[in-house]
Simulated scan of single mutants.
Amino acid sequence: MNNIILIGFMGVGKGSVAREIVKQSEMIALDTDDVIESMENRKIKKIFAKEGEAYFRALEHKVALWLQKEVSGTLISTGGGFFKVPNLSEIGTVVYLSAPFETIYQRIRAHPNAKSKLRKRPLFQDIDKAKKLYEERAPLYKEAADIVIDVSGKELDEIAGEILQKVRQDD
């Protein structure tokens, strides 16, 4: 089991960092939300709208069991709540991408596709609720992580390099 699992709040850049790690390493990448959308043949937003959050979390758990059993040598970027799966540490080295809420929110708003980015994140529709959720989750992410990387003010290549270096130190 030599997977790297990226966790952190929605919009922190897990997917972007994953793509950069792939460029800098021999790893392939997988996104848990993409796997769920493929399994269900529908978008996360529609799953949340029709089935609710509990159903979605059950899908994450199913994906986590599959990852633990079947996936190796892979960079895994996750949805914002994936860190709650009970077997997270059995899947690989858990890396928490950390940034203040305002940094994350400004990053999303500054993105060329900001409206689309906000629309596809069901839990980000109400900023006050999103901030409250961030405040609840931040200490839990840190607790679940083997490695914490503050991504504030850093370029993608710098973040990816730091992750690869720390993961290799832990091996």
Results as ranks from 00 to 15, higher is better:
123 L>M: 15
124 F>A: 14
21 I>Q: 01
120 K>Y: 02
98 S>A: 14
171 D>A: 14
104 I>L: 10
68 Q>M: 11
110 A>W: 08
38 S>C: 09
8 G>T: 03
165 Q>C: 10
107 R>N: 11
150 D>W: 04
64 A>D: 04
17 V>F: 02
166 K>A: 12
126 D>P: 02
66 W>E: 08
81 G>V: 06
3 N>W: 02
30 L>I: 11
153 G>K: 09
42 R>S: 06
81 G>R: 07
98 S>H: 10
59 L>C: 09
7 I>A: 03
56 F>K: 01
89 S>P: 03
148 V>G: 05
63 V>A: 04
115 K>Q: 14
159 I>K: 01
165 Q>W: 11
124 F>P: 00
13 G>K: 04
100 P>M: 08
27 M>R: 12
144 A>R: 12
167 V>W: 01
45 K>T: 11
30 L>T: 07
145 A>G: 10
26 E>D: 14
155 E>K: 15
20 E>L: 03
150 D>E: 13
76 I>M: 01
48 F>G: 05
54 A>M: 08
6 L>R: 01
150 D>K: 05
158 E>H: 10
64 A>K: 01
109 R>K: 15
115 K>I: 07
66 W>I: 08
50 K>N: 13
41 N>C: 05
36 I>T: 01
84 K>L: 10
67 L>K: 00
27 M>I: 07
133 L>G: 04
147 I>C: 08
30 L>R: 02
147 I>L: 11
59 L>F: 01
108 I>H: 07
28 I>K: 14
39 M>E: 12
92 G>Y: 00
169 Q>L: 14
28 I>N: 14
145 A>N: 06
168 R>T: 10
124 F>V: 06
154 K>D: 08
134 Y>K: 03
159 I>Q: 02
10 M>R: 10
57 R>V: 07
15 G>Q: 04
33 D>Y: 03
44 I>Y: 01
21 I>P: 02
26 E>T: 11
152 S>G: 04
2 N>E: 14
83 F>D: 00
97 L>D: 01
18 A>V: 02
73 G>Q: 10
